[in-house]
Amino acid sequence: MADPATLLPLLLLAPALVVVAGLAAAGGAVTSGDRATAPVVETLRLLTKQRRRTPADDPLLARIGLTVLPVAAVLALAVVPVGLPGTGAPVDLEVGVVWFNAMEVLAWFAVWTAGWGPNAVTALVGGYRTLPLGLAYELPHMLAIITPAIAAGSLDPARISAAQHGLWYAVWMPVAFLLYLVSTAAMAFWGPFAAPLGRDLAGGAGAEHAGLDRLLLHAGRWMLLVAAAAMAVPLFLGGGAPPPITGPDPFSGPAWSWFAIKLLVVLALLLGLRRVMPVLRMERFATLAWVVLIPLAVAQALVVTVVVLV
């Protein structure tokens, strides 16, 4: 650990995630008909804006939650093989996918406390919506993560990524890939799954937060979305390796360049999801997850397991 060469990626992790999350937010702004500079202006606006409190609130708990959100996103990204030298990940962890999922789950806790803290009904109901959302989409998400792990026989994202040189898992288990994308949007309460920050609740969990508090919530959400999208690359798209169909690498650039291209594709798919679907009510997203997605996820895991065993 004392070697500066191994520490550098860790130190750069948070700033890099902030930059990519900013780019993703710019993409999101353009998709919704706004200017690409909107996230920069918004960030400056929130930085110059006063913070705010409400009567009988619990600012400590709310701010713990608001801080945990971006931190959890950075910690989740830490185990993703982003194409660095060596195994590819800033931190090499044998049970990386479980760590990744645990960090995502911490983010729900963060949003819930952020909504609970202000002691106001819109924020409380917004924070509360995180729970059914998280619980409903954690199962398909976990199954979608575990399915490539079963095929590769490892919980290490680097090994999973290395196991698909012949055939991307996105091709061999398309249902799991699709479920991963949908549940990722839900994990980051983004797009059709933005009910916890819903406009019907005046911004939901964020309704009463201003200034830096609000920035942490919204930036943390984009960071979480990017971190979760990044994990799709090693799990389903062969990580930093060039596409198997091209034969020898046409670019022969560093591994992270392929990783970056694939990440952009995944982010574009997630941004597109916002275009095709309005925000879903609790009743709707719960039905979708429990009645459609979870049985599909179980079936996909079953098929992959049987193929691997036989």
Binding site: F109, W112, Y128, L131, G134
Partner: peptide, 16 residues
């Protein structure tokens, strides 16, 4: 890690 994962989910169910 599983303890962190499961306990967070458990707390969330309690909150519901």
């Amino acid at each position: 890690i599983v303890v962190v994962l499961m306990m967070t989910i458990e707390m969330m169910i309690m909150v519901v």
